[in-house]
Nucleic acid binder design. Structure first.
Lengths: 208, 208
DNA sequence: GACTATTGGATACCTCTACTCTCCAATATA
DNA sequence: TATATTGGAGAGTAGAGGTATCCAATAGTC
């Protein structure tokens, strides 16, 4: 198919598709002539992936490119892929600058040890957690190990559910993409579930 | 204190503080003269709150203002506050436009019914969940009720932990602020925990 | 084969956000 | 009195994420 059909089928304007091509988010089509290129279903799929990451999840174009690059480069090693790709996808807002303050970092390390988790020292999630704990403390809501532990146990069980869904996939590329989708795209869904559960729990406690 | 001290103590530049004042994120100080105003610890606290919401959580200035407004207006009703405020805080990226497609919305409704949750019909989290499910389906990863249920049960237990932390707070303003912090600011922390748990679980399964 | 529409490619432009800079008169401080 | 600081307002800036325009080459249509 050509670019206009790609546009029609994906709902993304031609100019935006050209923009994604320029930015390297979408691989170029197969050139059939000097001013003609051919796109296929993989391009369509990739385009949907881009829109899901930037739209639903709110990733920046740069972060999306890094994730997609990691996907094509490390498709054979899901474990490595997740490490590389998820480094590009900040959990919250901006990436934290500089080395984390030692106070909360040590706290995170203690938590990981208590949980007996095997987590890389440079995992970005450590810094995110430490920074969040620091902010909460500065706002007068210190979360100690004791409070955090049950949350971590629930996260553990969530991760088991996640990994279960990757079983039985033979194609490594497919498994890698599914891993990404489950990790990154499921986040808004899980947060939405939490909010609904909060509303329900709040109603149970505060309403007659 | 005056603006320069507020700046020094918060780490936010004077010009940025002025910007927040202009945008209505920060209430004006007590005027002591035509070109002099006095700020107090509440301003400092509010400033830290603003930086946490925009920085750690990545909220836009507009969304932050809505959240803070809801906080001061509905401090007496935590249940209502969460409903109002969390509407302004999108879970993922952009707010979804228009009415959700009926397919996934019906799926979400079925899930809520199955869970016997009490969730408002217009809760934004419903739309977020529906949209995410739609994206995942378009990408070839349909999540059915059966897959989603265990995630929802874990969310339920997370919500219990959240609400437990609001018990025993007498000051309604304090309770309201804590509710916001726990809901909004804890999200990056929970996602970071999930990623670390995934790395751990992945290592347990794939590494010798 | 002529004619019109579409295409790929490049460049310039636009809008929005979140600041940041500059200026000013009034005031605090030495 | 001299110098620095302040509050306030408006203009300016940088980056993100597109959008619009132009161009020559080509595809489809008659």
């Amino acid at each position: 198919m050509r670019i206009s059909e790609l546009s029609r089928r994906s709902g993304v304007s031609v100019t935006t598709i050209k923009y994604y091509l320029r930015e390297g988010l979408l691989p170029p089509g197969r050139q059939t002539a000097a001013t003609q290129a051919e796109y296929d279903d993989q391009h369509l799929h990739r385009l949907r992936l881009i829109r899901a990451l930037t739209g639903v999840r709110g990733l920046s174009v740069g972060a999306t490119r890094e994730v997609l690059d990691a996907l094509t480069e490390h498709a054979d090693d899901t474990h490595l892929l997740l490490g590389v790709a998820l480094g590009s996808v900040q959990v919250g807002g901006k990436p934290a600058e500089g080395a984390a303050e030692s106070a909360e970092s040590a706290e995170v390390a203690a938590l990981v040890q208590e949980l007996e988790w095997c987590v890389h020292d440079a995992a970005p999630a450590r810094a995110v957690l430490a920074e969040t704990l620091g902010s909460l403390r500065a706002l007068g809501l210190p979360l100690d190990l004791h409070t955090l532990l049950p949350y971590a146990r629930l996260a553990e069980r969530t991760a088991v559910l996640d990994l279960d869904q990757l079983d039985g996939l033979d194609d490594p590329l497919e498994a890698a993409e599914r891993a990404l989708l489950l990790t990154v795209l499921l986040e808004p869904a899980l947060m939405a579930l939490r909010r609904m559960a909060q509303e329900n729990e709040s109603a149970r406690r505060h309403l007659p």
